[in-house]
Simulated assay, not measured.
Amino acid sequence: MKIAFYGSSLLSSYWNGAATYYRGMLADLARRGHRITFYEPDAFDRQSHRDIDPPDWAEVQVYPATIEAARAVIAQAAQADVVVKASGVGVFDDELLEGVVAAARPDAIRIFWDVDAPATLAEMRANPDHALHRAMPALDFVLTYGGGPPVIAAYEGFGARACIPVYNALDSETHHPVPPDPRFSADLAFLGNRLPDREARVERFFLAAAARLPERSFLLGGSGWESRGLPLNVRHLGHVSTRDHNAFNVTPRAVLNIARDSMAAFGFSPATRVFEAAGAGACLITDAWEGLGLFLKEGEEVLVARDGRDVADHVAALTPERARAIGEAARLRIAAEHTYARRGSQVDAILRDERERRACGALRRSVA
């Protein structure tokens, strides 16, 4: 099928945590025969921070961040069999959603793909005139990259015909073990941009642990932390390109995952870094959230912390041998059960089943 996908950015992960999710999902769908055009705005300085070249598995159209350019790419939705509007494009989100739903052919499959369901649902609750309320009757599916039963129930409550989680996963071609890199040496590393609903948890889990272990070294990657006061044993790197993620994950003794407040509250929302770290064979310490057991087993494939004291205790007790054993167990589990090949198969089945359902319906109507 021909898929028109309107998202934040495929070419750049700069202030764009969904990039690796898009790449893994769409690359696998292309391998299954789907033809994909990805539309991304030239916004937030992402194009000057590209970390991949335009891929051979998708056509990427970068358009100026103007309403005229947005309308021009919206019109191209009429050429697609499947029209996808992702959340968090950041430029003309409402116009894109309503525009592509209206421009799509009557027989096209219309999808809203939510890469931050807790934030979207909070906006919908606060704003009865939210564009998604208006678009919902025309949507065939809401796909989400996390959230599980709470998100499904919330979207169905807002009138979604079907809400289906399509979780983050591992692309073993891009995230895999590599030799350690001295640039990323540390006892514990954390990678994440500074965001309002993440900062308090970073303070609680990462910075508090660093303060408890002044003799240990901590590494902080991600944008926005430049103006934040940090303990003396915390080294800040700034933005870390996806090409360096493997080395960032495998070099430290352990890496830390910290869910944003909203993701932790909903549960069932593993961040991309969980799969990227596991794919590289890193020893992962994560904050606790409901649904973790669907992906990794506590104590064997992942270490779980309830606060900074727990994180510090894990770091203090972790030997190189145990860190390697946990990282390898996580890598094997994720590679066996949580890959983009599995997620792509899931989405491919959703699309083909819907097309078959429509064909059968049309046949019945013609016979009648």
Rank of each mutant, 00 (worst) to 15 (best):
K2R: 06
G7V: 07
S9T: 02
L10R: 11
S13W: 07
Y14K: 05
T20F: 10
R23W: 06
R32L: 00
Y39I: 02
F44R: 09
D45K: 15
R46C: 08
H49L: 01
W57T: 02
A58G: 10
V60D: 13
Q61E: 15
Q61P: 14
R71I: 06
K85E: 00
A86W: 05
F92K: 09
L96K: 08
I109P: 00
F112S: 09
V115C: 03
P118V: 09
M124G: 08
N127E: 14
A131C: 15
A138H: 09
L139F: 12
D140M: 15
G157A: 06
G159C: 07
V166N: 00
N168H: 11
S172Y: 14
E173P: 03
H175A: 13
H176L: 13
P177E: 12
D181A: 15
L188I: 09
G192Q: 08
D197I: 07
R198K: 12
R198I: 10
R201I: 02
V202K: 00
V202D: 02
E203K: 12
A209G: 01
S223N: 03
G229N: 11
L230V: 02
H236I: 04
H236W: 10
T242R: 12
N246K: 02
N249C: 06
V255P: 07
A259M: 04
A264F: 01
P270L: 08
T272P: 00
E276Q: 05
A278T: 01
A278P: 03
G281M: 01
E290V: 09
L296M: 13
G299K: 09
G308L: 04
R309M: 05
P320T: 02
G327T: 05
L332T: 08
L332H: 03
H338S: 01
A341P: 02
R342T: 03
D348N: 15
D353M: 08
R355A: 05
A359V: 08
C360P: 01
A362F: 04
A362V: 01
L363R: 06
A368E: 12
